[in-house]
Computed example of a mutant assay.
Amino acid sequence: MRMGLLVAVSAVATLVGCATSKEVYLADGSKGHSISCDGAVQNFGSCLEKAGELCGTQGYVVLNQSGEAVPFSTASGGYTATSLAASGGFQAQSGAIITRSIFVKCK
């Protein structure tokens, strides 16, 4: 059981740590890449590393870069004092969804 949990956690951590890309056409008709490196585990360096993998030794030009942290807060459970006491609990979660992306064109 414990080994299975360790494998599952490792698999999720591996997936979370990967930048994703999508081929796009730019305004001038040339091909480019939209690369996302969202989440707390990654940074713009992850996006740039992916750009290097995609373009190889020819290099790339960063056309645009954006990123933001969008705060969120959710709550579940009872919304009145009576229902809170009856249910025995209240769950709240808050944090931020971090998004980062770059657009690159291979040289």
Rank of each mutant, 00 (worst) to 15 (best):
M1A: 13
R2F: 04
G4D: 10
L5C: 03
L6W: 11
L6C: 02
A8Y: 04
A8I: 13
A11Y: 11
A11W: 10
V12R: 03
A13K: 03
A13F: 07
T14D: 10
L15N: 12
L15F: 12
V16L: 05
V16N: 02
G17I: 00
C18T: 11
C18V: 13
A19F: 11
S21Y: 12
K22S: 15
V24M: 15
D28R: 08
G29Y: 12
K31S: 14
H33M: 00
H33S: 00
S34M: 14
S34W: 14
S34F: 14
C37F: 03
C37P: 02
D38L: 02
D38A: 08
G39L: 06
G39W: 02
G39H: 06
V41E: 11
Q42C: 05
F44S: 10
F44T: 09
G45V: 01
G45R: 03
L48M: 04
L48A: 10
L48S: 08
K50Q: 10
A51W: 01
A51Q: 00
A51C: 00
G52Y: 09
G52M: 07
G52L: 07
G56C: 06
G56W: 06
Q58W: 05
Q58V: 14
G59M: 11
G59I: 11
V61E: 15
L63S: 03
S66W: 02
E68K: 07
A69I: 01
A69V: 06
V70E: 15
P71R: 02
F72P: 00
F72M: 02
G78T: 09
Y79A: 11
S83L: 12
A85V: 11
A86N: 14
G88E: 12
G89I: 05
F90I: 10
F90S: 13
Q91F: 10
Q91E: 10
Q91R: 11
A92K: 08
A92F: 06
A92H: 09
Q93F: 04
Q93R: 12
S94Q: 08
A96G: 13
I102K: 01
I102C: 03
F103C: 01
K105H: 07
